[in-house]
Design a protein around this nucleic acid. Sequence first.
DNA 1: GTCTATATGCAGATAGAC
DNA 2: GTCTATCTGCATATAGAC
Lengths: 213, 213
Amino acid sequence: MSRSTVCEDPLAREPGDRRETILDSAAALFARKGVAATTVRQIADDVGILSGSLYHHFDSKEAMVDEILSSFLRDLNDRYTKVLAQKTDARVRLHDLVMASLEVVEAHPHAAEIYQNDLNYLLGIERFSYLRNAGRQVQDAWLTVIDAGVAEGVFRGDLDSKIVYRLMREAIWLSVRWFKPSRAYPIAKLAGDATSLFLDGLTAETAGPPDRA
Amino acid sequence: MSRSTVCEDPLAREPGDRRETILDSAAALFARKGVAATTVRQIADDVGILSGSLYHHFDSKEAMVDEILSSFLRDLNDRYTKVLAQKTDARVRLHDLVMASLEVVEAHPHAAEIYQNDLNYLLGIERFSYLRNAGRQVQDAWLTVIDAGVAEGVFRGDLDSKIVYRLMREAIWLSVRWFKPSRAYPIAKLAGDATSLFLDGLTAETAGPPDRA
DNA sequence: GTCTATATGCAGATAGAC
DNA sequence: GTCTATCTGCATATAGAC
């Protein structure tokens, strides 16, 4: 539509990139201060334009939030679907679910934080009622894996699987608030450690056969 | 100061109760929609007065948030202190820390949710910079218990204790978003189940001593 | 695609009557 | 202790020039 039709310097940013630049600024601000507390002026300042100019690219502030969260949820859904398609051992699938979650969070850190912090607020806005569905799908994915594990006898059956799901998923997703992946401690290691904690527990295995600790 | 000096009908609410009523309404709204997105008019509506009248009781909206969070944090600090004073087995103390957390969350559900959701936003306001300290104290309490357990050989030493702390504490505190205690499933049971999951893991112990992995 | 200028509404907060 | 009335500022969003 309004995209330029001539080819610019190939080293310059492509057309359409401007939208992404704005969304990046907006997402960072939304994540840090909350959606309601972030003004379109702050977003414009961060980009380096005036607030009125934002409306050339987006219909409203809500529209920006919408795009940010939608792409996050699309990615999340894709990865969870792939994990569920694998019919492997429940322990492996649980680990894969943890890893997939951390990968999505790493790819969309701001969106993940917005989802964590502002979900209640957003659900009060009609436009975002679809978020309720997204939450249900996430829960279904985890419960499928947990319940399969219990059925196979691999997982304990004495705990309510919904409670187990909540405790594990929230712990993993909230890592976006404090975890910064590094060479020394990449997300794969966090996924391994978290899964190991959830599956085997914090208790030392000294007393057992040999000593694994 | 401004409290009435005569004794009213003993069945009526005591003087000073009006403040509490307002704080309750405010806390519920702050928790549900977020502090920034809640207006003083909504609070007044909920109480059944006009927004201007709120300022007879409180200096500002921030002052309300301040009182709500302060009493929550005071209670939290008290209970954590008591748990740390007990020099019992690390497993027991970890359970007690979980239980203390759930008790505070149960006693101040709205405040706990505000703290969870709006901490980033509030930390951007000078008045609330003291919240940073509160967070450090919580972390110290958990790390003390975890590290003591590792030192005693009761807990595994192969996981970073800060990571373990984050995963467990966030899972427990976030339960305020979904857990509603009932006769059938009171907080004591959640504390037990969560502690059991963290300490012993989700893996079934069907096979004997041999392969637990 | 950005700017200037501005419409419109609602936010937090205040002063003084009752 | 609440209400009436209102101040002040800033929010989102728009219209049209450049």
